[in-house]
Structure formats: structure tokens, C-alpha cells
Design a protein around this nucleic acid. Structure first.
Lengths: 374, 374
DNA sequence: TTCCCGCACGTCAACGATGTCAGTCGGAGT
DNA sequence: ACTCCGACTGACATCGTTGACGTGCGGGAA
């Protein structure tokens, strides 16, 4: 046996007593230092009114015995400012956000909220009884002091307004831009759909297919609105069969594209599923025997400026979701620090470009006019 | 302007009052229901001693007004059981764990700890003053009731024992297997190094290079131990120049491999950097003008059983880290639920195989004997 | 009828930290 | 010498919740 000492039993005891030790309190520290609890509290919170010697003594004792204040007790006397909660609409592995974006988002949240010792509390509970109320349950429970609703799924207006009314800092990402006083950071999906459709209409297309996200995914509504606006302006009738809901699954995406493109009168496609899978669209087209750029025109939406995902044959809509998120998170951090109180409104405009004609992806971030007012 | 109603001011007020509303308390609910706070508490906690009518009434009021108990106040009366904290040694984007593994880990943690309404509190604070103490700061602060130390960086023994002594459920992942009474879930890195070196020695090699992880990365120590053991058994002298620390950066990996292989007497290499980058090793070898499988022998370590990463020319060590993590997390969940109290010891054995001779990657998970005792 | 038991409640103190306020103690000003 | 002031410190109440314990009431047994 190569590793003696690694062995330990795996037993089950039927009578399990609660062994968790109570932990040090401020009174313990006070007793050790020979002062009152309040004086220790003053040192912990960096308040004035303690002599230099006592302050040094108490600080030394605190670090020696490893005293940490009890967060719960603290949160009863003052609003909690050292943690943010992040709510998702679905477990990470099913998130419509790409994994790359998700990890970037995590890192950004940590960077902004942990540098002064803060905590991030993730809430991906897919088992909640009432998803919508539960979006902010950590806020109602005073578990964290600010809240990021990272999901683009619908949050109903009552919940949104309840969060707003609670006075806690919060930010809804990817949604809620239509409610005037609700904090959000997102991109303008309606505009993206409008630009896509208009681009294709201007090229002479009349029957334009669109892959919109599945039911219940709020930005899908906005997409449809932009699409319809472009059609209306050009006086082209709407055929509801051309707008298909898709999941974020690559195979599903390919198969829906396939079926759409079997209809030869469909000469253009807007791929706005939210996934980065331009490849899936290409696969679907291949199966239908059609060649993008020759047979039909495509507009692909992308959330990154990564040239690797570019499809030379297609026009692209760049949705600066990362830029919007970054900006929104900065403002949320200000709010937590009480450097602002108004709801956050960050809405970035999408940009249309074509890899074969535009040499560079437009770098300057197109901001919504709210932000230009600064 | 396409979107009226989206505009909102971006102002700074110099006198910011704290607007955060106090929130509903159990007393508010009690008043509404015409009962005492204790009775409401009984309903909230599903305790006996409340008549059916009152229980129904109170439950209705709770859901109507959206009352949630204050977590902090609660945690002062009973140990917190509805949340786990996860500590990392570094920000996610710098993690030695692959992004794929990381997201899988997140999902697994949520699956196990959120299904009954739990929360996950991540702690990636890279700004902590005393990293080692801070590994469990959320535990000392009673912020969460159980703790996962997800980092393979060294946790010093004092901290480990302090966590153990506190009686809180915890799990150290990827490390600490050498301390007898400390909970951990990991793979046997020493054995992996031993198997790798022995395989190469048996093939007749005498000068075997090893890429070990950077300084401070604890499993690196264990790797070296296994390597040395194999050398000793074969009575081959140790040349310290053959064991190079690397970071988890693909370019760095390639360049170190390059330099190692410029020495023609080096005829074998163990690539155990922990990254999935067999490609980097191949690139380094190419630059040195050497061909793996012909010029020299390689053993590549991998954490997945994904055939896509396999290099036909190399022998592989499969480290079932995911399996170990999954098992450890299950046991931690049991501990939180008080179905066990002993420290967790999950140590999986690595497996050596060669894609060109072994038809299948050995599927049955090789467990350490501790687990076989069950 | 009396006693006792158990259910359905309520009362109260305590958890750990901090805000409020009331002291104490030098030293400077008159 | 006497006041006054400011720096330092502690006593106490309080936050929201729950454990321990007390009370009143109805019903069955003696």
C-alpha cells in the first residue's frame, strides 16, 4: 500500500451531535484586552476615540486569535455593503450566455466587488418555487446588499419594481430596458433586429427568415419588434412561418436552419439565436444544399469582436454586450459605495459590418444617448 | 430617437441618504395575522403546535406580502445550513483548472447545494491581506455554513486544522491528502508521477524530463516525490535540471519544452503541467526539431477522458479529478445534512494507458482503498 | 368532581454587534 | 481655584429570530 496514513474510516453515526464550535465573539476579544466590547468594535470599524496603545493592543489580539466579526449580527445594525448576489435564470451549464462570456463576467464581478474584501453570492437555484419572486430572495433575506440579475429571461414588472422600491442597489443585465425606472445594462436588441432586416431588405430580399430565441426569453420579443418595424417600413408583409424559435443547442440550430432553407423562396436569414454558432447555421445551410453568400444572404449576430468566429460570407451584427455589462457593473459598484442613487441605464447600440468590405470591426463603442450625456 | 422612454438622467447627488428600506420582519407578519411572532416562526420553520387554520392564514399572509426571514438574525440562533462558500486560490481567469472543468465544477456545486434553496458564496478575493487565514473567512464570519477550498495552492496546516477544529463541514480539493485528518478530494499526484517515470524507465530511458507546475503549487511537490521514487528504484541519479517549473500558459509551456529537448541526451518527457495542452508540448518539440514517438517518448497527463485531446504518439496518464471532485462534493453534502461527521478522504488513482495499444480508456474508476471499504 | 395531560399558543431572554448617550479624566482658560 | 472642553471609554438598548419555558384550555381517566 503506497500511502499509509491516508486511510480513514467512512462510518455513519446514528446520533450526530452538532459539533460546530461557536466561534470567537467581540466580547471574548474585549475580555482578553481588558476593555469593553464597544472599544473593540471601534477598532474593528476604524472609528475614532481609542487611544493609540489600546488600538494597537486590540489589533494585535484580533490578529493573534483570528477574530472575525459575525456577519449576521452585523447585518442587523447596518445595511450590508460587502457582498453582491448574482441571480441566473438557469444553471450555468444551460446558460444562453457563452461560457467564455460567463467566465469573463465572473471575473469582472470579482474584480469590482471583492477588492475591498467583498463576497459574491451566486444564486442559480433552478428549484425555486416562485422563480420570479426568488430572483431577489437573497436581497429580501438581507443575505447580500446588492443584486445582479444576470438572466435575460423575463423578470416580471412587479418584482422589478419591488427591487427598485427596496432601495437596494441592483442591476438587471440583458433585459428590462423597456421599463423606464429599472436599472439595466444591455444592448439594443430591437435595433439589432431592425438593422439586420433593413440591411437584407436594402439588398432586395423580401422573404427573410429569422431564428429567434425560445419562448420566455425576453430579448426575443424585442427582436421580433425590430424585425417587424423594418418590414413595415418597406411595406413587406409578415409571414410568421419565417420566424422560428430555437434553443441554444447547436444541433437544433442546424436542423431549424435546414428546414427553413428548404423553401427556395427564402433568400435571406438572420441568425440571432444568441449563441456564437455561426457554424451551426452553415451546417444547416449545407444540409439544405444552399451556399451562404451565393444562394442566400445571412446576417450573423455576435457578442465578441473575435475575428475567429467571423464568417466571411455573412454580414455581422456586433452586440457589445460585454461593454454594456462592464459599464453597468462599474455603475453598480458606485451605487453600492453610495456614490450614486439613480437607476442605472446602460444601453449599447449594435453595429452592422461585413468582414469582406469593412477592414476593421468598428472599435469605438456606440453608446446609447443616455451615456453620451455624461 | 428610436426608443423614447429609455432616457434617464445620470446625476450625482452630493448628499446621499440611505434609502434602503428596512424590510418586513416576523413581527409585522405576526401583527397582520393577529398572532405572536413565535407562532409565525413556527409556521416558517414547519414546527408543530399551530392549528390548521392559523397555519394556513399565516402561510397565506407570508406569501402575499413577500416575507422572507432575515438570514443574519437567523444565523445568530442556529448554525447556518443553507449555504456553502467556495474559495479559490486565484481569480477564475488565472485558475490552473481548465475553464471546462471550472464550469462543470460550478454546475455540480449548484446541483448539490442549491436544490433545497441553498446559496453558493464564491470567494475569489485576490486582495486578501493574509491569503491563508482568509481561505475560510466566510466560515469565521458565519457567512456560510460549509466551505470548499477549491484551490490546489498550499493551505498551511494551521489553517487546515483550524477549519477542521471548528467543526464546520468543509472539503479541500486537489490538495492536503498528506494530512491525515483533513477532508480532501483529489487524485494521487505522486502515484501519477511514479507511474509516468516507471513507464519511461521500463522502456529504457535514463534522462527523463518533467514539466512540473510553478512554485507554490502544492501538487508539484508530490509529483516530484513520485518521480524521485521511480528513479531511486531504478538506481538512476537525479538531475535537477530535468525538472522545470512551468506556468499554465501555453506559450511558456512550449518554450520550456523546446529548451529541454535541445539537449539530445534527454530522451523522454513527462508533461504534467496540469493544463490540457498536449499541443503545446508538441509545438515545443517541433521547435527543437524532435518528433515525439520517434525521437523521444512522452507521457501526457490529462484530466478528461475526452478522446479529442489524445495524442496518438504519447502514453497518457488519466487523472480522474472530476470523479474525485464529484464524490467529495456528494460526501460534503451529506456532512452538511448531518448524515456524516468524519473528515472526507477521497483519493482517486491515476491510470496509465496508451491510445495506440489500449482500445478504450479504462472506464471503471480506480478508487483509493478508503472508498473501497464502504 | 377532580386531576392530569397535551395541545396551542404566548412571554422572555439571548444570539453578536453597534448606535446612543452618559460618564471620567486630564489639561487649558479665566 | 474653578470651570469648561475634548478625548477616551463603557453601560445599555436594540436589531430579527428562535429556544426555553410558562399559561390556559379542553378532554379523558380516576
Amino acid at each position: 500500500m503506497p500511502h499509509p496514513g491516508k486511510v480513514s474510516g467512512y462510518t455513519m453515526s446514528s446520533d450526530i451531535s452538532d459539533l460546530r464550535k461557536p466561534g470567537l465573539t467581540i466580547h471574548d476579544v474585549a475580555k482578553m484586552a481588558g476593555v469593553s466590547a464597544k472599544t473593540v468594535s471601534r477598532v474593528v470599524n476604524d472609528e475614532a476615540g481609542v487611544s493609540h496603545e489600546k488600538r494597537a493592543l486590540i489589533a494585535r489580539i484580533i490578529s493573534e486569535v483570528g477574530y472575525y466579526p459575525h456577519t449576521g449580527a452585523r447585518s442587523m445594525r447596518k445595511p450590508c455593503r460587502d457582498s453582491v448576489g448574482v441571480t441566473f435564470p438557469a444553471p450555468v451549464e444551460q446558460s444562453p450566455l457563452s461560457q467564455q462570456f460567463l467566465l469573463w463576467l465572473f471575473a469582472e464581478i470579482y474584480r469590482l466587488f471583492c477588492k475591498d474584501g467583498g463576497f459574491v453570492c451566486f444564486d442559480l437555484n433552478p428549484f425555486a418555487k416562485n422563480r420570479d419572486e426568488d430572483y431577489a430572495r437573497g436581497l429580501w433575506q438581507q443575505r447580500y446588499g446588492a443584486c445582479i440579475v444576470a438572466g435575460p429571461l423575463a423578470v416580471n414588472d412587479t418584482t422589478a419594481h419591488r427591487i427598485q422600491a427596496s432601495g437596494h442597489p441592483y442591476l438587471a443585465m440583458g433585459r428590462l430596458d423597456s421599463l423606464p425606472d429599472i436599472s439595466c445594462a444591455t444592448v439594443d436588441y430591437e435595433e439589432a433586429a431592425y438593422l439586420s432586416a433593413k440591411y437584407l431588405i436594402d439588398k432586395g430580399h423580401k422573404r427573410i427568415a429569422m431564428l429567434r430565441a425560445f419562448e420566455g426569453y425576453q430579448p426575443g420579443v424585442e427582436r421580433l419588434r425590430g424585425y417587424l418595424r423594418a418590414l413595415e417600413e418597406a411595406e413587406i408583409p409578415f409571414d410568421e412561418n419565417l420566424v422560428r424559435p430555437v434553443t441554444f443547442d447547436a444541433l437544433h440550430l442546424a436542423s431549424v436552419t435546414h428546414r427553413l432553407l428548404l423553401d427556395p423562396t427564402v433568400t435571406a436569414l438572420i441568425e440571432c439565436s444568441g449563441s456564437e454558432d455561426a457554424a451551426s447555421v452553415r451546417e444547416g445551410a449545407r444540409r439544405a444544399g444552399r451556399v451562404p453568400g451565393q444562394d442566400f444572404d445571412v446576417v450573423v449576430w455576435t457578442y465578441t469582436d473575435n475575428a475567429a468566429v467571423l464568417n466571411e460570407a455573412a454580414a455581422h451584427i456586433w452586440l457589445p454586450a460585454r461593454e454594456a455589462a462592464a459599464e453597468g457593473l462599474e455603475l453598480l459598484a458606485d451605487w453600492v459605495q453610495e456614490r450614486r442613487t439613480d437607476p442605472i441605464k446602460v444601453i449599447y447600440r449594435p453595429t452592422l459590418y461585413h468582414p469582406s468590405t469593412d477592414r476593421e470591426i468598428p472599435k469605438p463603442k456606440p453608446l446609447f444617448d443616455v451615456l453620451l450625456n455624461r
